[in-house]
């Protein structure tokens, strides 16, 4: 009873400071643009006036929706193999030793940079873009799944083994739930990464999508549109982060909330 009450209280109060922070940032933008007049920076109000043009434009909206669909597909696919691989790495030294160097080598490679190569192989369609997103988000999910699986208490597994649970069953029924909080931290990073990879690959491929709209506006010197698109993308990033945080605290209310940095490499 009191727990539920404190949780709703907690859900209401933490929302306020970030909201105020948003307002303060927009206000600072407005004032800075007005009084500093840096070249090419429109003020916040005129940028907001540009928003209906994007959101009302069926074509633009359709492209953004298509972007999001690819992002969802890539994220889902990555989740399917990254979580089991990560959990396996966390519980088996051999698997970890096998796979880790490969991941280390791949880590600093910008996945969106593979876009030109992958487009050579798979063409310019959705497949290339989805594959790049899969590559982009899988590393943090694997990493956090491994950390989560590694931290599972040995004695929990011993008890399960004593009860006659088989290896794979232990992975699915003990390690997975026990590692869930940490996995979700990885997913939170992954989801922001998916957005970044999506936009970057569209900036590089210059075919369709949110990233493409951004750069077309830049080419045509439509500064307000550039900034409005940045607003849209930023809002997407924040919204995804907030949504996911909600989902996470709902799923893992039993665990201490891990302060999860939404770290976002491209």
């Amino acid at each position: 009873m009191s727990r539920a009450a404190s949780r709703t209280g907690a859900a209401l109060r933490p929302g306020l400071p970030p909201f105020l922070a948003c307002l303060a940032l927009l206000l600072a933008w407005q004032i800075a643009a007005r009084f500093l007049a840096v070249g090419g920076v429109p003020d916040a109000l005129s940028t907001f006036r540009e928003l209906p043009a994007i959101i009302g434009d069926r074509e633009a909206l359709g492209e953004i929706a298509a972007s999001l669909r690819r992002m969802g597909a890539g994220f889902g696919l990555a989740l399917l193999f990254s979580v089991p691989l990560g959990l396996l790495m966390g519980r088996s030294r051999l698997v970890s030793a096998l796979v880790n160097p490969l991941l280390m080598v791949g880590y600093p490679v910008p996945k969106a940079a593979l876009m030109p190569l992958i487009m050579l192989w798979l063409g310019v369609g959705d497949a290339a873009k989805i594959l790049v997103i899969v590559l982009g988000v899988s590393l943090p999910i694997i990493y956090h799944s491994r950390q989560g699986a590694r931290a599972v208490e040995e004695k929990l597994l011993w008890s399960a083994a004593a009860m006659g649970m088989s290896g794979p069953a232990r992975l699915a029924r003990i390690v997975l739930p026990a590692a869930l909080p940490e996995i979700l931290v990885g997913c939170r990073t992954g989801i922001v990464l998916a957005l970044i990879t999506m936009i970057t690959s569209e900036m590089i491929a210059r075919q369709t999508g949110a990233g493409n709209i951004l750069f077309n506006a830049l080419d045509m010197a439509q500064y307000e549109t550039v900034y409005a698109m940045i607003l849209v993308v930023s809002a997407l990033g924040i919204a995804l982060d907030v949504l996911f945080e909600r989902l996470r605290s709902g799923l893992t209310g039993w665990a201490e909330p891990i302060p999860s940095p939404a770290i976002a490499p491209a």
Partner: peptide, 23 residues
């Protein structure tokens, strides 16, 4: 600072790149 950082952290910074080029 904390809420400002919280808001700015999940924004894909690469989206700001066109604006940076403009300025």
């Amino acid at each position: 600072l904390r809420p400002v950082i919280r808001v700015l952290a999940p924004i894909p910074k690469i989206a700001l790149y066109p604006a940076l080029i403009l300025s």
